[in-house]
Design a protein around this nucleic acid. Structure first.
Lengths: 203, 203
DNA sequence: GTCTATATGAAGATAGAC
DNA sequence: GTCTATCTTCATATAGAC
């Protein structure tokens, strides 16, 4: 039943979703829903909590064991984009952003489960690469450098998909976006930056 | 009356907003609303169109005449962040993202009025700086380089504010974010990059 | 164009039998 | 715990007078 609610809330958002839809999707009756959850709000909160927990588990599996600098960043970036650009990832983002004023606690939960976790993961790796002189941050802290990279990754990609809800990114596009982010990051912070473009070709 | 509708829709989103709220906010009666607009959807569409037009005008005023490389990018970035991180900017983004599946046309309108316009503006400047050898894109196209910069600018800042709806960014924070983006961009693509951090100090 | 009053439907939530 | 049936409230939208 939580699954049914998840489907409905992620598809329609909080306000536009109705308990009827959830009830029908779950194949139970309306009263059954209210036997388990006190209100629509409570059900929504439970859904978001579950999705955030799932998101966190997913992102935690993205641990690349430290291989080379470029490979590590590319792998993590690739996995991260695949998560946040998936239909579920986009839908969760949509509903969180939309309902943040009304459900600030859930919004913060999302932040901690998603962006924060991937930031911490990347920060560990970047810290290591800095210590071993494979990166040179030129006065920028590890935290800020991490934000730079995450931001490069998140990319217009997300915005484009959010505002063009019918389109889907191809694997090649994702490759290109990741390569663009990693190349830029290395141009900026690798002591011996690559001479030119390396990675997937144009989108 | 459009203004009243704007206030309500930006505050509550589409579904949670009611015609009662709009009617009360506008100080007119319910029937008057339906005399001007065929439906709630039509009113919403009109609101979004107006806000997008306003947004486009605002962003179009961000034309920095080309002074130095760093100054130009910093100025544009600064103005752009001030727009998208303003309460109105965030609220518009929220509702667009939330309602994109239901109002794809309005979502595309937003994309064209906001991100697209600032991208085009920045692309013109970056193109100029490339031609005059003040930037060296190392195999990355002007379009992609522009996206990189826009993305660096948009920053976690937006995400943090979206998921922490009570907080407001200080002017110092915005300065810091812009400096971080511009520095990174110059580290990556200026033929003679700055040796280290330059700009506002830590947040 | 604007109001009062209202039709009509649907939403969230519950009562009470099984 | 689960269903059927229903209560209550409130939303969109309209009718008809001024």
């Amino acid at each position: 039943m939580l699954n049914a609610a998840t489907t409905v809330f992620l598809r329609h958002g909080f306000s536009a979703a109705t308990t009827d839809m959830i009830q029908r999707e779950a194949g139970v009756s309306k009263a059954t829903v209210y036997a388990c959850f006190a209100s629509k709000e409570a059900l929504f909160a439970a859904v978001i909590e579950q999705e955030c927990a799932r998101l966190m588990r997913t992102i935690r599996t993205i641990d690349a064991q430290s291989r080379g600098l470029r490979v590590t960043l590319t792998d993590i970036g690739h996995d991260y984009l695949n998560v946040i650009l998936s239909p579920t990832g986009l839908a969760l983002y949509r509903v969180i952003v939309a309902e943040a004023p009304r459900f600030p606690e859930q919004a913060r939960l999302f932040y901690l489960a998603g962006p924060k976790v991937v930031s911490d993961l990347l920060a560990r790796h970047i810290g290591y690469f800095v210590e071993t002189d494979q990166l040179q941050l030129k006065g920028i802290g590890v935290g800020d450098a991490t934000k730079v990279l995450v931001n490069l990754l998140r990319h217009d990609a997300q915005l484009e998909l959010l505002t063009h809800p019918d389109s889907r990114p191809s694997a090649a596009q994702i490759d290109h976006w990741v390569a663009l982010a990693v190349n830029t990051f290395l141009f900026a912070f690798a002591p011996e930056p690559p001479a030119g473009w390396a990675g997937a070709v144009a989108n």
